[in-house]
Amino acid sequence: MKTLIVFSHTWFKGSKVNRALLEAAQDVKDVTIRNLEELYGQNPEKIDVKAEQKLIEDCDRIVFQCPVFWFSTPPMLKAYIDRVFEHGWAYGSQGHALEGKKLQLVLSTGGPQESYKAPTIGELFLPLTAVGNYTGMDVAPIRVAYGCLTISDSDIQKLCDNYKKLLSE
């Protein structure tokens, strides 16, 4: 399965878990990684909509990978969706480019799982699930790495192994 990882992290240089996950993903066959801040900085105007749409058209699965920032996505991921998933391409009477593709959310949190009981991660990220459903995508259950501020190296390795397994399916 050809997979496109659309990754966003405002402070990637300080990331421990997401950096490890991206490095692990690079080892998986048929995976393309788009690090939005690396490509476009913090400027949504720079997003190359047609190039990003072409990459999506050529994949079977889209993975949105990001840390949870104040109970939401980093701003560049939101801007990416707003710009790339445009009317007439992603939705509308002529917009069918995403239909049948799989959507996977891979999230990380600084806080422990107990911090996300009300609202839950599923409730917080319902808008992204709705985007997937609205555009005809097959939305997979959300994967979350909780407690990344205090996670052990062995637990990071387990996350990486599980991520590779997920991406290889």
Rank of each mutant, 00 (worst) to 15 (best):
F71Q: 10
T73H: 04
P74Y: 08
P74L: 04
P75L: 04
P75S: 08
K78N: 12
Y80H: 09
I81F: 04
I81G: 07
D82T: 10
D82N: 12
V84W: 10
V84N: 12
H87W: 13
G88D: 07
W89R: 04
A90W: 07
Y91G: 07
G92R: 02
Q94E: 15
H96E: 13
H96T: 14
A97I: 01
E99R: 14
G100H: 08
K101Q: 09
K102S: 12
K102E: 15
Q104F: 10
L105G: 04
L107E: 09
S108E: 04
G110Q: 08
G110K: 06
G110I: 07
G111D: 13
P112F: 06
Q113I: 10
E114Q: 13
E114Y: 04
S115E: 06
K117Y: 04
K117H: 12
P119H: 05
P119M: 03
T120W: 03
T120K: 09
T120S: 13
I121N: 00
G122Y: 05
G122I: 09
E123Y: 11
E123K: 11
L124M: 15
L126I: 09
L126N: 10
L126E: 11
P127Q: 08
L128A: 00
T129Y: 09
A130D: 05
Y134W: 12
T135W: 03
T135C: 14
T135L: 04
G136H: 08
G136K: 03
G136R: 00
M137L: 07
D138N: 12
D138M: 02
V139I: 13
A140N: 07
A140H: 13
P141N: 10
I142R: 00
I142D: 03
I142W: 00
R143G: 06
R143F: 07
R143L: 08
V144E: 05
V144D: 06
A145N: 05
A145P: 00
A145G: 06
A145W: 01
G147H: 02
G147L: 04
G147A: 10
C148P: 02
T150N: 15
T150K: 15
S152Q: 02
D153N: 12
S154F: 02
I156K: 12
I156T: 12
Q157M: 07
Q157S: 13
L159W: 10
L159S: 01
D161T: 15
D161K: 14
K164N: 01
K165I: 10
K165D: 01
L167G: 05
L167A: 04
L167I: 09
L167N: 00
L167V: 05
